[in-house]
C-alpha cells in the first residue's frame, strides 16, 4: 500500500470517527467539555496546587488579551494577529514611562508603575485605534474579506514588533532588578506579592469589563453589534462609534496584560507574539465573540499549560515546560473536534 493511500485511509477513518463524535447532541458535548474542564480544575487543585496558582495568574493575564481579541472578532469579523504585539508594545511603553524608586508595601515596584500602566493603556488604546483608521477601516470600506484583514493584521504585527526592536533592542529588560521572595500560603503554595497584585488587578479589570458590557448602554450596544451589525444599524446604533470604543477598550486591556506579564517575568520583543496561540486557543475555546467565554477559555488554557509542566510524561521526548505552546494547541484541537462553536458560541 502506498503512503498516500494509507494517509487517505487514516484521514477517512479519523473523519468518520470524529463525525460521529460531533453528532452527539449539543448538550452532550457541552456536558462532556464542561466535565473535562471541571476535572482539570479539581485534579489541578488537589495534585498540583502550586502550578494551579501559576496557571490562574497566566490565565488571568491571557484573559485580558483574549477578551479584546474576541470583541474585535465579534464586532469586526476578523482575527487580529496584531493583538499579541500590541501587548508587547504596551509592556515596553510602561518600561519607558516607569520612573523607578520606592515600592508599594511588599510589591517590587512603586507608584510610578501605576502611572506607567495607565500611560501604556492610553497609548495602546490610541495605537490600536490608529491601526484601524490607517489599515483596517480603509480595507473594510473597500469590502475586503476577513482573510485579507487578518493578513493585514499580520503586517501590523510585524511593524509593531520591528518598532519595539528598533527602540529597545533584542535583549530582555526588567522593570525592577533584584529578586522578590515568595511567601507561604495555605495548601503548601508559595506566592509572590507581585503575583497577588496581578491576580487582583486582572479580576478587578475583568469585573469592570463585565459591568461595561452587561450593564451600560455602550456595552449592550457592543454586544448587539457583535450579534448582528446590520440590525444594530437599523436600530439606530452608530456602529462606527462602537468600532472606535472596541479598539480603545481592547487596546487598553491588552496593554495592561503586557505590563502584568512583564512584571512577573521580563520584557522581550516576542513576548506578546508568542502568546498569540494561547490567546486564540482561549477565544475559540470560549466561543469566538463571547466575552465570558474568553475569560473561562483563558483560565483553562493558562491552567492546563502550567499544570502540564508538572506532569512526568515519557512521551514526547524531553517533555517539559518547552511543550507549553503545544498544550495550548492540543486544548484547541480537542475543542475544535468536540465542540467547534466553543463553550458559549452559537452553532451557526
Amino acid at each position: 500500500m502506498s503512503m498516500s493511500v494509507l494517509a487517505g485511509r487514516i484521514t477517512d477513518t479519523l473523519t468518520t470517527t470524529f463525525g460521529r463524535l460531533r453528532n452527539v447532541s449539543d448538550t452532550g458535548t457541552a456536558v462532556g467539555v464542561w466535565g473535562l474542564i471541571g476535572a482539570l480544575f479539581v485534579w489541578a487543585a488537589l495534585a498540583e496546587t502550586q502550578l494551579l496558582v501559576v496557571g490562574i495568574i497566566v490565565g488571568s493575564i491571557l484573559a485580558l488579551g483574549a477578551i479584546g481579541l474576541t470583541l474585535i472578532y465579534g464586532i469586526l469579523r476578523f482575527a487580529n494577529f496584531a493583538h499579541g504585539d500590541m501587548m508587547t508594545l504596551g509592556a515596553y511603553i510602561a518600561f519607558f514611562a516607569y520612573i523607578s524608586g520606592g515600592s508599594i508595601g511588599p510589591l517590587s515596584f512603586g507608584f510610578g508603575m501605576i502611572l506607567a500602566v495607565l500611560g501604556a493603556a492610553a497609548a495602546i488604546a490610541f495605537v490600536a485605534f490608529a491601526s484601524d483608521r490607517i489599515v483596517f477601516r480603509p480595507l473594510r470600506l473597500r469590502g475586503s474579506s476577513p482573510a485579507i484583514l487578518a493578513i493585514a493584521s499580520l503586517g501590523v504585527a510585524l511593524i509593531v514588533r520591528a518598532t519595539v526592536l528598533l527602540l529597545w533592542g533584542p535583549q530582555p529588560h526588567r522593570y525592577v532588578s533584584g529578586i522578590q521572595f515568595a511567601r507561604d500560603f495555605p495548601f503548601d503554595t508559595k506566592i509572590k506579592p507581585d503575583q497577588i497584585f496581578i491576580i487582583a488587578s486582572t479580576f478587578v479589570l475583568i469585573a469592570l469589563v463585565y459591568l461595561v458590557l452587561y450593564r451600560t448602554k455602550l456595552g449592550k450596544a457592543m454586544r448587539a453589534t457583535s450579534d448582528n451589525a446590520d440590525l444594530a444599524r437599523v436600530s439606530g446604533i452608530d456602529t462606527d462609534r462602537i468600532t472606535m470604543w472596541t479598539w480603545w477598550i481592547s487596546g487598553a486591556l491588552v496593554a495592561i496584560a503586557g505590563v502584568l506579564l512583564a512584571v512577573q517575568s521580563q520584557l522581550t520583543p516576542d513576548m506578546g507574539f508568542s502568546l498569540l496561540i494561547p490567546l486564540f486557543a482561549a477565544t475559540i475555546l470560549g466561543g469566538i465573540g463571547s466575552p465570558h467565554g474568553a475569560l473561562i477559555g483563558a483560565l483553562v488554557v493558562g491552567i492546563s499549560q502550567e499544570v502540564s509542566t508538572g506532569l512526568d510524561l515519557p512521551f514526547p521526548p524531553g517533555w517539559g515546560p518547552g511543550y507549553k505552546p503545544a498544550v495550548a494547541f492540543f486544548v484547541l484541537i480537542v475543542m475544535l473536534i468536540l465542540r467547534p462553536q466553543g463553550l458559549f458560541g452559537s452553532k451557526s
Partner: peptide, 26 residues
C-alpha cells in the same frame, strides 16, 4: 420610521429586555 428585516431580526445573545433596549437606543 422603523424597519423589521425578514430574517436575523433579533439579537440572539441579548436578553429580550436588552433587545428592546437596543430598539430604543436613540
Amino acid at each position: 420610521m422603523s424597519y423589521v428585516p425578514q430574517t436575523e431580526n433579533v439579537f440572539p445573545s441579548l436578553t429580550i429586555n436588552e433587545n428592546l433596549e437596543m430598539g430604543g437606543f436613540v
